[in-house]
Simulated assay, not measured.
Amino acid sequence: MPGRCAFCLAPAVPARPWCQDCFESLPWNLPACPSCAEPQPPGSLAGRRCGRCLKLPPSFVRSHVPLRYEGEVARLMQHFKFSASPRAGSILLELLQFSLPADSLAWPEALVPVPLHPSRARERGFDQADWLARRLAKRHGFPLRHAQRHRHTRSQRGLDRVERFRNLRDSFQVVGALPPRVALLDDVMTTGATLDALAQACRAAGAREVEAWAVARTPLSES
């Protein structure tokens, strides 16, 4: 309803689809590793990289993933991803955009959404990362570039962290040269394996620095 919170139907903050109480109660991804955005235990030092990133840094230099994939965020994401709900997608896009610092929004010289394999896109009939990227690029004037998933990988569901990284190795390709600063966009980040593989392809295409953006990150216990 116009002027009402999408979560509780109370009066919304002006020009936003949420009220202040619901906004503050969302599962914010804090604290989180600045490299891979993995949620960290309460009390962890802000800005401190996690042990995995200290041992083996990802191919992207930093991540911006403002929310955890749980509660209201998980429900919105499921409606968006599996029912192609434009309402749910619009709310998630607003949350991502509102949470990205102004200097982050001014940083990229190109935006690259995580692509679905064409056969999976036909099966689902909807590419959620591309939907988000097109709207974000239009709002902020980012050049939109596309990668190709040239290898049809098995689903990541049910795979552990090591299997996810192995499953996606060499699965993306970017045709043509990319500018030096590139941001990648996905809806949900689980272990970071998909974004890491895409970052490698972007670096092979000329990008010198790559950031990873996503709306939500799976909780620590599910990574």
Rank of each mutant, 00 (worst) to 15 (best):
G51K: 12
T153D: 02
C202L: 08
L9N: 12
P57S: 07
C5D: 04
R75I: 07
S85H: 08
R145Y: 13
C36M: 10
K55D: 14
R157C: 02
R16G: 00
R161K: 14
M77E: 03
G71C: 07
F142S: 01
P14F: 10
G158Y: 11
G192S: 05
E209M: 09
R181F: 13
H79K: 15
M1Q: 11
E94C: 11
D170N: 15
R135V: 07
P101G: 06
A37P: 00
G43C: 08
S35N: 01
G125N: 09
F7P: 01
A197Y: 10
L132N: 03
A121G: 07
Q78S: 11
V65F: 01
P34H: 01
D187T: 14
G158I: 10
G47A: 03
D170V: 07
F23I: 08
V175R: 14
A10N: 06
R208S: 12
L168F: 05
V175M: 06
D170I: 06
T190W: 08
S25T: 15
P42W: 03
S104F: 06
D170T: 12
Q156R: 07
R120C: 05
H117N: 08
R169H: 15
A15M: 11
G3N: 02
F142H: 10
P39W: 06
M1H: 13
C22V: 12
F98S: 13
P86H: 01
R217D: 05
S171W: 06
C22K: 02
R124D: 07
F7A: 09
A207I: 03
A212T: 10
G158L: 08
R169S: 11
E38H: 11
W28L: 05
E109N: 06
W28D: 03
R135F: 08
P113W: 10
W107G: 04
G158R: 10
L178A: 05
L185M: 07
A106G: 07
T190L: 04
A88N: 05
P115H: 02
A10C: 07
A102L: 14
G125A: 09
V65E: 03
L56H: 14
A102R: 15
E209T: 14
P57L: 14
H150C: 01
G206Q: 11
S171D: 05
D196A: 02
A214G: 10
R161T: 14
D130H: 11
V188R: 00
R16E: 12
L95A: 06
P219I: 14
M1L: 11
T190D: 04
K55F: 12
R151L: 10
D170G: 09
E123N: 02
L198Y: 02
E94D: 15
R157G: 03
C22P: 05
L30T: 15
R62S: 13
L92H: 09
M1S: 13
T153P: 08
A183W: 08
S83R: 15
N167K: 04
Q200L: 12
L105H: 07
E123V: 12
Q20L: 15
F60R: 00
P27M: 03
Q97S: 15
A177Q: 13
P11G: 11
S223Y: 15
Y69T: 09
A12M: 06
G43L: 07
P108G: 03
R87N: 08
L195V: 12
L178N: 02
A46T: 13
V65P: 00
E211M: 14
A106V: 02
P14H: 08
A204H: 12
P101F: 02
